[in-house]
Design a binder for these strands. Structure first.
Lengths: 110, 110
DNA sequence: TGGCTTTTTGGTATAATTGCCAAATACTAA
DNA sequence: TTAGTATTTGGCAATTATACCAAAAAGCCA
């Protein structure tokens, strides 16, 4: 594997890793609807503000969200509009897993 | 956040997390072309066989790949055909990041 | 069977992630 | 300036991920 390909894989993994957490997926889903301030997200998520702030920081570092300070609040929104489509494939893996599980149940009864 | 949504987020995060590693992205890319045995992947990746085997196990657990034993070799292939599209969005994030970086360079010279 | 190849599993050391608390920072408004 | 609100940062403990080596398991063939 050459260095250029390795770098490219590292970059992509970094972005995907930024999405690989339930709370951060939640944030992405919410931001698909409309921008949110940290306080609103914190309330919806039900974790410590500092935790939510760090999740947002991970998403921002990866280039997935962008922030906008207005008054003493910080509003976040998606930076790239295609994230919704992004999850289409994840869903089809999930559905495929579910189908397999159901078939296995049919067969073994477990 | 209700329990059903939380479960759904957990499942999706698990699948995305399975992709969130450079070596596993490499494997997915290679399997897009055609199925591969563990030995071929190991040679291309240049890590210990046991390491590659464990990466494959992660992908299999997530339902992303499927294995097929033939003789004393095990061949892996993608289980869901849409993974290639999946990366379209990751690319656009990367390109967006690159553009921003270039613009910043124009502006600050750094 | 015995030797060979391929793959997986167990063990272990190291590194990265996560979540909370406490403290710092930034801004508003009185 | 002082008090109050919103957010970020530093520090720390607990958990999880990663990579390697050694050994086990599974299959081939002489």
């Amino acid at each position: 594997m050459n260095q250029s390909r390795k770098n490219h894989l590292d970059e992509r993994a970094r972005i995907i890793k930024a999405m690989a957490h339930p709370t951060r997926l939640f944030i992405i889903e919410e931001l698909e609807k409309e921008e949110r301030c940290v306080c609103d997200l914190t309330e919806e998520i039900g974790a410590d503000v500092s935790t939510v702030s760090k999740h947002l920081s991970v998403l921002k570092q990866a280039g997935i969200v962008i922030d906008d300070k207005r008054g003493n609040q910080v509003f976040y929104r998606l930076r790239v509009p295609c994230i919704l489509n992004f999850f289409g494939c994840v869903e089809s893996v999930l559905e495929s897993n579910a189908r397999e599980h159901a078939a296995l149940f049919e067969f073994t009864g477990k």
